[in-house]
C-alpha cells in the first residue's frame, strides 16, 4: 500500500506548484479545490490502511465540509472583484 500513498503525494505536488506561481486568484482557487479533495481521499486511504474507523469518519466529514467552505470563499472573492 505504500506505493499508493507515494503516488498520491506526487499528484499532490502538482497543484501546490500551481498555487505557488500566482497569476490569477481563480487558478489558485482551482488548486485549492484539487488539494482539498486529494487530501481527504488520502485521509480515507490512511484510515483503510490502518483499519481505523474514526479516521475514516473524519475523512468523510472533511471531504464534505471542505467543499462547502470552498463555495463560501468563492462567493466572497467574487464580491471583492465586483467593485
Amino acid at each position: 500500500m505504500n506505493w499508493i500513498l507515494l503516488a498520491t503525494i506526487a499528484a499532490l505536488l502538482i497543484p501546490i506548484y500551481e498555487a505557488w506561481q500566482d497569476e490569477n486568484i481563480w487558478q489558485t482557487m482551482l488548486a485549492f479545490s484539487s488539494i482539498a479533495s486529494k487530501t481527504s481521499i488520502m485521509i480515507l486511504i490512511v484510515s483503510v490502511l490502518r483499519d481505523d474507523w474514526t479516521l475514516g469518519v473524519v475523512g468523510v466529514i472533511i471531504l464534505s465540509v471542505g467543499n462547502a467552505a470552498l463555495m463560501l470563499l468563492a462567493h466572497i472573492i467574487r464580491r471583492t472583484n465586483e467593485l
Binding site: I16, A19, D22, I25, T28, M29, A31, F32, I35, A36, T39, S40, M42, I43, V46, S47, D52, T54, L55, V57, V58, G59, I61, I62, V65, G66, A69, L70, L73
Partner: peptide, 30 residues
Amino acid sequence: HALVIRGIFGAIAALVYVLFGAADVALTEA
C-alpha cells in the same frame, strides 16, 4: 492569495494530524 494558501496549508495540516492518529485535532483544524 495568502487566504487561499492558508486553506491549502490547513488541508495539509489536517492530513498530517490524521497520520499521527489525532482525528479530533484534524477535524478541528478543518
